[in-house]
Design a protein around this nucleic acid. Structure first.
Length: 426
DNA sequence: TCTTCCATCACGT
DNA sequence: CTAACGACGTGATGGAAGA
C-alpha cells in the first residue's frame, strides 16, 4: 500500500522559559507568569557570567536575543527578570512531552531536549489529515502540559524543521514540495538549517542572499568555496532534499565532555589541577553510568582573551577511571599550557567503546581495584544525593573557584525576585 | 601511498 | 561592528605522523 512520506517537527516555544513558568505556576498558582513580562533564563545572573538561554516574548521586543551575554541583555532591557536555569525541571517536562508525542507514532526521534521529529507516514490515517492532527497535538500539549509548541508538517525532516521555525508561537505550518518556492526560497540564506555565520559570509561573498538563489546555483560553483561535502548538503537542503530517516533509537555517544567557565581567571597549576579533578570526576561517573570506556582524553582551555586551545592523548588501555582520566588530563595541561590566565577548562573523553566484557584484569593491582571500588561508591552516593554532597579532600581547603551548576539551585525562587540591585556595574 | 592521529573550525540546541 | 559570553554534542578538514 502506498504511503506518502509525512514528518512532523515539534519545537517548544522558548522552551526553558516556558517550562520555568509552568513549573512556578504549578508550585504556586498565584505566581507571576514569566511569559507575560520581559524575562529570561540565564546561566548565572548573580556572578554576571552566562548568556541568555531563553527569553520571553516581551523581552524579545526589547531586542533581547538568545545566546547574547546577560550584561548586554540587561543594557537593552534593565527591567529584565533573569532567572537561573534548572535542568532537572526541563528534563522532566521534556519527558512528559516525548511521552505524549509517542501516542501518535512509535517512530520518534528526540532531536534535543525540546525538539522531536515524528514519522507520521504510517499512522496518520488513524487520526485524520495532517493539518488537523498537528493542530490537535498542539492544542493537547497546551491543555495538558501548559506550554505552547510550533509544529512543522512536511515530507521530510529538513522541511519539517524549517516549517516549525516559520511564525511563532503556538502555530502549525506546512511545507510541502509545491510550497517551497513560495515559503522557503524567499528566506535569507542564514535561516537554512546548517548555514551558520561562516557559510553565510562565504555565500554572500558570491552574491547569494536567499535560499532560492542557493537552490538555483550550480553546485559545482559552491564546492571550491564550501568544500565538496558541505556544498552538496546545503544545496540539497535549499532544494528541499533530505533523505535522512527519522531515527527511533538515539545513537550511542561518541564522546563525554565536561567544561566550566571559572569565576575568575586561573594562572596557577594547582588550581587548574583541582578544576581538572572535578571535571574528570563528572566525566568518569558518566562513563561508568553508561557502562562505556574511553581510549582518548582531550583537555581544552580558553584563555582570558577567548583564545581556545585543545590537546589530546591516546591512552595505553581504555578506561572509565576518574584517576586515569585525571592523571592524563594533568599531564596534558602541564605540557601545553603556557600559563596564560584561563577563563575556561574542559575535559573530554572520546573513542568510546562498550564495557561489556571488561571485567577486572587478572594483572590488575589491588590498589587500582580499591580505587575502582571507591569511585563506584562515590558514584552511588552522588546519584542518591546529588553531585555536591561528596567532594574530594583537595576541594575542602581551597575556596571554590568552580561554578557548580548544582550548587546554586537552592533559594532561587527568592533570589530571582531581587534582581534589581546589580545593574549598576558594567 | 594509504590510513590514522591531531588540532581547529563550523554548526546545532 | 566589536566586545566579550555557555556547555555541551557532531562532523569536516588539512597537515603530521605512522604503517
Amino acid at each position: 500500500m502506498e504511503q506518502s512520506p509525512l514528518v512532523f517537527h515539534i519545537d517548544v516555544n522558548s522552551a526553558f522559559l516556558s517550562w520555568e513558568s509552568v513549573c512556578r505556576l504549578t508550585e504556586d498558582p498565584e505566581a507571576l507568569d514569566l511569559r507575560t513580562i520581559p524575562s529570561a533564563v540565564g546561566g548565572d545572573a548573580a556572578s554576571r557570567h552566562g548568556i541568555v538561554l531563553a527569553k520571553s516574548t516581551p523581552a524579545k521586543k526589547y531586542g533581547v536575543t538568545t545566546g547574547e551575554p546577560l550584561v548586554q541583555a540587561l543594557r537593552k532591557c534593565p527591567s529584565l527578570c533573569v532567572v537561573p536555569s534548572r535542568f532537572d525541571v526541563y528534563i522532566h517536562y521534556s519527558t512528559l512531552l516525548m511521552n505524549l508525542l509517542s501516542d501518535y507514532t512509535p517512530d520518534i526521534e528526540k532531536f534535543s531536549i525540546d525538539e522531536a521529529f515524528l514519522d507520521m507516514s504510517s499512522t496518520i490515517h488513524l487520526f485524520g489529515d495532517p493539518w488537523t492532527t498537528a493542530n490537535q497535538i498542539r492544542e493537547r500539549i497546551c491543555r495538558e502540559l501548559g506550554f505552547t509548541v510550533n509544529i512543522g508538517i512536511a515530507p521530510n525532516k529538513l522541511l519539517a524543521k524549517m516549517a516549525s521555525d516559520f511564525r511563532k508561537p503556538d502555530m502549525c505550518h506546512t511545507l510541502f514540495l509545491d510550497e517551497i518556492p513560495e515559503k522557503m526560497w524567499p528566506l535569507p540564506i542564514r535561516e537554512l538549517f546548517f548555514v551558520g555565520r561562516s557559510a553565510q559570509n562565504k555565500l554572500e561573498g558570491i552574491g547569494i542572499h536567499t535560499i532560492g538563489q542557493l537552490a538555483a546555483i550550480n553546485v559545482e560553483l559552491l564546492k571550491p568555496i564550501l568544500g565538496e561535502k558541505y556544498a552538496i548538503q546545503i544545496h540539497d537542503y535549499a532544494c528541499g532534499i533530505d533523505p535522512s530517516p527519522v531515527a527511533e533509537r538515539e545513537p550511542i555517544n561518541k564522546g563525554y565532555g565536561n567544561s566550566t567557565t571559572l569565576s575568575r581567571d586561573v594562572d596557577d597549576l594547582d588550581t587548574a589541577f583541582t578544576v581538572l579533578l572535578s571535571l574528570c570526576e563528572t566525566v568518569g561517573a558518566r562513563l561508568r553510568a553508561d557502562h562505556v570506556i574511553c581510549d582518548c582524553v582531550c583537555v581544552e582551555i580558553k584563555d582570558w582573551d577567548f583564545h581556545v586551545q585543545s590537546h589530546q592523548t591516546t591512552l595505553n588501555s581504555p578506561t572509565d577511571s576518574t584517576t586515569v582520566l585525571y592523571e592524563n588530563a594533568c599531564r596534558l595541561l602541564k605540557e601545553f599550557w603556557d600559563r596564560t590566565p584561563l577563563r575556561l577548562i574542559g575535559v573530554r573523553a572520546t573513542k568510546i567503546s562498550d564495557d561489556e566484557f571488561s571485567q577486572i584484569s587478572l594483572f590488575e593491582s589491588e590498589q587500582s581495584k580499591k580505587m575502582k571500588e571507591m569511585e563506584k561508591a562515590v558514584d552511588q552516593i552522588r546519584s542518591k544525593f546529588g553531585t555536591d554532597i561528596i567532594k574530594r579532600a583537595s576541594f575542602l581547603k581551597k575556596d571554590s573557584i568552580v561554578d557548580h551548576a548544582a550548587s546554586k539551585q537552592k533559594h532561587l525562587s527568592h533570589s530571582a525576585l531581587k534582581e534589581d540591585d546589580k545593574n549598576t556595574k558594567n
